[in-house]
Amino acid sequence: MTADTLLPALTASARHAVHPAADTDCSCATEDALLADRDDGTVVRHGDTVAKAHAPDTDPAALARRLSVSADLPGVLLPPLDRAPAALLGRQVTLWPYGSPVDPDTPDAAPWEAAATLLARLHRAPVPVGLPPMRGPLKAARAIGRLRAAGPHPGAAAVLRAWAGLPDWARAQAPMAARALCHGDLHLGQLVRHPAPDGPWLLIDVDDLGAGDPAWDLARPAAWYACGLLPPDAWLRFLTAYQDAGGPAVPAEGDPWPALDVAARALTVQTAALAVAKSAAADRPLDEVQQAVVDACDRMSGESPELGQGFAT
């Protein structure tokens, strides 16, 4: 199946959701929009409805369970339009209301407090029976697999050394402690305002949702801060808001790094692995941000087990 086949069918699904009584070739004034087209998902919009084709290896039963969780946590997760995915050309498709995303051109207005508060509420919610494990470590392991398949690169050795130093659970080689309901892939692209454009912020993308260690959901901003890529004030805003909302991943007071260290290392390795793989595939050097995470992996190899606030130095 090619994108030329999937995109028209996915767009037709979105159109049918908006105009169920009309032909899929409706001639309404609303334009279709391609919001994302990646290996792990293709997303299109028609009016106020979004249709997503999930990754080809998506388990429909696990996805349905995650959709139910999203539907049952209003005010935290964006609720789907249907609790059950539909099959389309060998892909699982879900329908969602449209929400306004974070504006990447206004970093000073990034909703760090909202993200942290939503995470704390998610982590404090009961873990539903039968929910699959959170898939964060699996994504890190896949990034390493992509790195190994990409061919020689001067940054690869440092990333692989840092990976080897992580505990088995962080490398998806042992069960993760199922302490909380976790998002699994938290970053600012996972927040939207709904109703658009000025409604409250909500979390989106349930593909990695599951039971696991809540520290993983704080790991990406923690890693960015430790690598010097997230300003200290933004990190402090995020961390403080999470603690004020009663988030269980870190202590309410005191040093948060013992709880965050392993997950922050793992997210740093994941980010570096993808950066090196893309660099090798495109035969181009790492950019400044990519080099920063590879350098952090190099420092990990010679440091004590806990990075703490010295990670960036």
Results as ranks from 00 to 15, higher is better:
A280M: 03
L202A: 10
L274G: 15
G90F: 01
R171I: 06
A62S: 15
P128G: 03
A141D: 12
A263M: 09
P60Q: 00
R148W: 00
A141E: 11
P256D: 06
A162W: 10
L77I: 08
M1H: 12
R142A: 10
L202G: 01
D283M: 11
P74N: 02
L166A: 08
L67C: 01
D205C: 04
A275Y: 05
A55K: 04
E288R: 15
A86T: 13
G165A: 13
D287H: 12
G189C: 10
A273Q: 02
P111Q: 03
T240D: 13
P128M: 02
P167G: 03
A157H: 14
S100N: 03
A51T: 09
M300G: 08
D217K: 05
G199K: 04
E31I: 06
L122P: 03
A312N: 12
P104Q: 04
K139S: 14
W235C: 07
L209G: 03
P154H: 06
D108V: 13
A312L: 10
V262T: 15
T11F: 10
A22V: 08
P132L: 06
L202Q: 14
G308N: 02
I204N: 05
P60C: 01
Q291T: 13
V250Y: 06
P221K: 02
A164H: 12
Q290G: 15
L73P: 06
V269M: 07
Y98E: 00
L236R: 15
A61M: 06
W201D: 12
P133I: 02
P248E: 07
R146C: 07
L286C: 06
R237Q: 11
G99F: 07
L202C: 09
G199D: 07
T58K: 05
L239D: 11
P232L: 05
W163G: 04
D244R: 15
D198T: 13
A55I: 02
Q270V: 00
F238E: 01
G90C: 02
L203N: 04
D59M: 05
V206E: 13
Q309T: 15
S27R: 15
H123Y: 04
L166M: 07
A252S: 14
L229G: 02
V129N: 14
G75A: 04
V93E: 08
E306V: 15
P128A: 04
A281I: 07
R124W: 00
L35I: 09
R148P: 00
P137N: 04
A172N: 12
P111C: 01
P200D: 13
D198Y: 08
A141C: 08
R65A: 14
L67N: 00
D25N: 14
S279T: 07
L274W: 11
F311M: 13
R161P: 01
T240Y: 05
A156S: 13
